[in-house]
Computed example of a mutant assay.
Amino acid sequence: MDRIIDRIPEADFGLIDEIAKGNEKANVLFAAVDYGIFELLTQPKTADQVSEEIKTDSRLTEKFLNALVALNFIHKIENQYSNTKLAETFLVRKSPFYQGTLFEMKRRGLTDWQRISDALKNGGIKTGTENKSIIDRTFIVGHAEMAITGVMQRAVDVISALPEFKRAKKLLDLGGGHGLYSIALHQLKPDLEVVLFDLPHVTEIAKEYLEQYGMSNKIKIIAGDFTEDDIGNGYDIVFASDVTISGILKKVYDALNENGVLIYRRWTINDDRTSPLTSVLFDFMLAMMRSEHRVYTLGEYIHLLEDTGFSITRILDISSPQDPTKIIVAKKSKK
């Protein structure tokens, strides 16, 4: 009879264990944000001091703080706890890089992920938001917070180096959302006329960011639905980020000046639709939500653009593990 001690698995269980612990880690982080732990620990405090301030059980509070240490969000030195640089940068409300609303947006989606079994049986799930837009304040501010983690900076750095950008006089930020791309591009080229187009309730949020950065009188806002309304014309550049424009490419083409360019920043998925992981999970979520949208391959984007009359001049890969993004630069060709 085989000895159980001799039966060693040929595969490493580590990845499965790490994935299974993901929910535990996320909930520890969410609770810390809810209790304002990272605001408290901008200065060192003991577990008893933290417990007294947030009115929680002292024994559990110490173990909770130890879990945050293990997750590398806080330090523990001589029984005093304080933030790591990671927490100070992204988890303290006064930080310009605070991600609290993004966490709220992520947490909102956890319920849907827990319904995968039902979705597989029924071809999708009912979210309760079928008759209203998910593009609400939490969605817009959460995406703004994600943008400033480096996502927006990488894209703008690449775009600003393009010769088409350097000679452009008028740019449309189509589906510009929070407006941070419009702000950054105008700051780099103050003589550039920038127009931000998005839904009326979204542009109200964008106005707050424009005011925050002193851009209220420098960037023009047009409120509307780009699938139905006129988006204007005479643009040297149409910039679109994280929006689906496959159904209005002809409208975008016509809005550009001769030799104008579409600069399209978008997640892509590989040809067999199995990587990168972020894109695959997002594509799966869209399908679960019974969305008409999906994540496209780079080849599919190129095909759509060329069929509309664009010629592809550049494909720029600015991907990170969390942000599998490519920037496609497509020129309006003479017909």
Score class of each variant (00 low, 15 high):
Leu180Pro: 04
Tyr181Ser: 13
Tyr181Val: 07
Ser182Asp: 06
Ser182Lys: 12
Ser182Phe: 05
Ser182Ala: 14
Ser182Asn: 14
Ser182Gln: 07
Ile183Arg: 12
Ile183Ser: 13
Ile183Leu: 15
Ala184Glu: 07
Ala184Phe: 10
Ala184Ser: 08
Leu185Phe: 10
Leu185Ser: 06
Leu185Asn: 05
Leu185Gln: 11
His186Arg: 15
His186Val: 14
His186Tyr: 12
Gln187Lys: 14
Gln187Glu: 11
Gln187Ser: 08
Gln187Gly: 09
Gln187Thr: 07
Gln187His: 02
Gln187Asn: 14
Leu188Trp: 07
Lys189Ile: 06
Lys189Gly: 05
Lys189Ala: 15
Pro190Trp: 02
Asp191Tyr: 12
Asp191Pro: 10
Leu192Cys: 08
Leu192Tyr: 01
Leu192Glu: 02
Glu193Arg: 14
Glu193Thr: 14
Glu193Trp: 04
Glu193Asn: 14
Val194Asp: 02
Val194Ile: 10
Val194Asn: 00
Val194Glu: 03
Val195Arg: 00
Val195Cys: 12
Val195Glu: 00
Val195Gln: 01
Leu196Thr: 02
Leu196Gln: 07
Leu196Val: 03
Leu196Ala: 02
Leu196Ile: 07
Leu196Lys: 01
Phe197Val: 02
Phe197Pro: 00
Asp198Phe: 06
Asp198Lys: 03
Asp198Glu: 08
Asp198Pro: 04
Asp198Asn: 11
Asp198Leu: 05
Leu199Ala: 02
Leu199Arg: 06
Leu199Pro: 06
Leu199Trp: 01
Leu199Asp: 00
Pro200His: 04
Pro200Phe: 06
Pro200Glu: 04
Pro200Leu: 05
Pro200Ile: 05
His201Arg: 14
His201Cys: 08
His201Pro: 09
Val202Pro: 01
Val202Lys: 03
Thr203His: 05
Thr203Trp: 04
Thr203Leu: 10
Thr203Ile: 14
Glu204His: 05
Glu204Ser: 15
Glu204Gly: 06
Ile205Leu: 08
Ile205His: 04
Ala206Met: 15
Ala206Asn: 06
Lys207Phe: 06
Lys207Trp: 10
Lys207Ile: 10
Lys207Tyr: 10
Lys207Met: 14
Tyr209Met: 14
Tyr209Val: 10
Tyr209Thr: 11
Tyr209Ser: 11
Tyr209Ala: 09
Leu210Ala: 02
Leu210Gly: 02
Leu210His: 01
Leu210Ile: 04
Leu210Thr: 01
Leu210Arg: 04
Leu210Glu: 01
Glu211Asn: 13
Glu211Cys: 11
Glu211Ile: 05
Gln212Pro: 07
Gln212Arg: 15
Gln212Val: 08
Gln212Glu: 12
Gln212Ser: 11
Tyr213Cys: 13
Tyr213Arg: 08
Tyr213Gln: 04
Tyr213Leu: 06
Tyr213Gly: 05
Gly214His: 02
Met215Phe: 09
Met215Thr: 11
Ser216Asn: 03
Ser216Phe: 03
Ser216Ile: 09
Asn217His: 14
Asn217Gln: 13
Asn217Cys: 12
Asn217Lys: 14
Lys218Trp: 04
Lys218Pro: 06
Lys218Asn: 12
Ile219Lys: 03
Ile219Asp: 01
Ile219Val: 09
Ile219His: 02
Ile219Met: 05
Lys220Ala: 09
Lys220Glu: 05
Ile221Tyr: 00
Ile221Ala: 01
Ile221Gln: 01
Ile222Tyr: 00
Ile222Pro: 00
Ile222Val: 06
Ile222Arg: 00
Ala223Lys: 13
Ala223Gln: 06
Ala223Gly: 03
Ala223Ile: 02
